[in-house]
Design a protein around this nucleic acid. Structure first.
Lengths: 244, 244
DNA sequence: TAAACAACTATTGTTGACAATATAGTCATG
DNA sequence: CATGACTATATTGTCAACAATAGTTGTTTA
């Protein structure tokens, strides 16, 4: 299941600013717009065939998602995520997805759990095929988390996680060419979480999700401690990193 | 109070869009812009003495804070918070401020704790004076939580809570003319949380903060169950409600 | 050579006008 | 009387030009 992009097939009930916002968000997350680089309004507006007005509105929306940083009279830069910032995100995800799992356990119907299972089955197929590796680890993984958040039925929680933090996660993974490094273990943990949700055991689901994300956060922390952290030293290498 | 006139006498290191964004945010939180009402761009731009361009950028920022909702080709409406939505916010606050408290316990210096104490002392003075009642319960309370989040040293956590959720909380309290109803008990709980932070006991601080906020959430939930929830029935009455 | 100053260029900030869309009001019609 | 189509108006969406600011380049001077 695809998380980010809106279809837009029917055409124009939406506005230029909204359209270009989504295009830019996709470009940023994919890394087509280089992290740290400056946004040139005349150039971008020409590329997208629109004027600067709607473009600036789109940029303001990107600012709201924390995908760009705007300095008055200077311009907007694509955000650059270093490890400490990603750790901050993991800390927040740990709390919020724990909450989401607990709520999901209270809300999920039998069909919901069935959908989760089939998603995991799909993942299982991909996990052992080499060419599916990238898909599962990058997209499929966040899709699982996406589903859980949906089941929480807390729309604001959904906005924060799926509208903001997940895009940053994807962006970081592309930035660092990071394939999560423990897919098999993560896959097991996903199943355990669904087990807990299926039983309606919210506390257990929360605990398991906390651990699941915490593991990855700690791996990142270890990686940070291992290196002397000059401000921009750690994000280019494509070394191993934890899943989730 | 006059809404429209912009001061702008001293200088101009910021942009019109940013200035009017802050003014509008303040107006919304204070209730000067009625929840649910529509934003009229020509009118607002005239009131603030700017053109529609920067105004629209400001509105897009407000959208990012979830203070307005924009419908394409229709316009922006001031957001209207009903009880279920506020409960959603409480759920998130519970998780995130628990996290903040845990992190604060790890980071806080002696001076930091001293500042927290003096803030609470300040509150104690106000809590027993009738005219200070409003201040402590509305602003002072969130100030305490604000400080804790700062001590967490997680900048993104700070953004979510203080840049978004707290404004919504203030807005809701103004909307409902809600004075938190158990200031003395809440005051004690605040002290307990500082105790835990002072001892460096992150887990306890988290637990206490969770409970502290959970209490208010449950009170709100009870209020919701007590009434048959027609969609817009519950937000005008100024009845009792829990603190936090 | 290095530092400071000045002019220039490119980019951002802002505006008012125009086009497209939705809403309100009016009138005709069943 | 209600309902539906049509007109008129107001509001939103978009654009291109203008103003203001920052960054750059080149020159001058100690």
């Amino acid at each position: 299941m695809k998380v980010g992009s809106a279809p837009k097939l029917t055409s124009k009930s939406s506005t230029l600013a909204d359209d270009v916002f989504e295009q830019l968000r996709a470009s940023i997350v994919k890394g087509e717009l280089t992290p740290g680089s400056k946004i040139n309004e005349p150039q971008l507006s020409k590329q997208h065939g629109i004027s600067r007005g709607p473009l600036r509105e789109a940029i303001r929306r990107l600012e709201g998602c924390k995908l760009v940083e705007i300095k008055p009279n200077v311009g907007a830069n694509i955000v650059f995520l270093d490890i400490p910032q990603v750790i901050e995100i993991y800390e927040i995800r740990e709390s919020l997805e724990g909450l989401a799992s607990r709520l999901a356990a209270l809300n999920a119907s039998a069909e919901d759990c069935e959908k989760l299972r089939s998603l995991l089955t799909e993942h299982e197929r991909h996990i052992h095929s080499q060419n599916g590796r990238r898909y599962y680890q990058r997209e499929g993984d966040l899709d699982f988390h996406f589903q859980i958040v949906q089941l929480s039925r807390n729309s604001r929680l959904f906005d924060i996680l799926c509208g903001e933090l997940y895009h940053l996660m994807r962006m970081y993974r592309v930035q660092t060419a990071n394939e999560p490094s423990r897919p098999v273990q993560a896959f097991k943990e996903h199943h355990q979480i669904v087990d807990a949700i299926e039983k309606g055991d919210g506390e257990l689901a929360e605990l398991l999700m906390n651990r699941h994300i915490s593991t990855a956060r700690k791996a990142l922390l270890a990686r940070l401690d291992g290196k002397p952290q000059t401000k921009f030293s750690e994000n280019v290498d494509a070394g191993s990193s934890a899943h989730q």
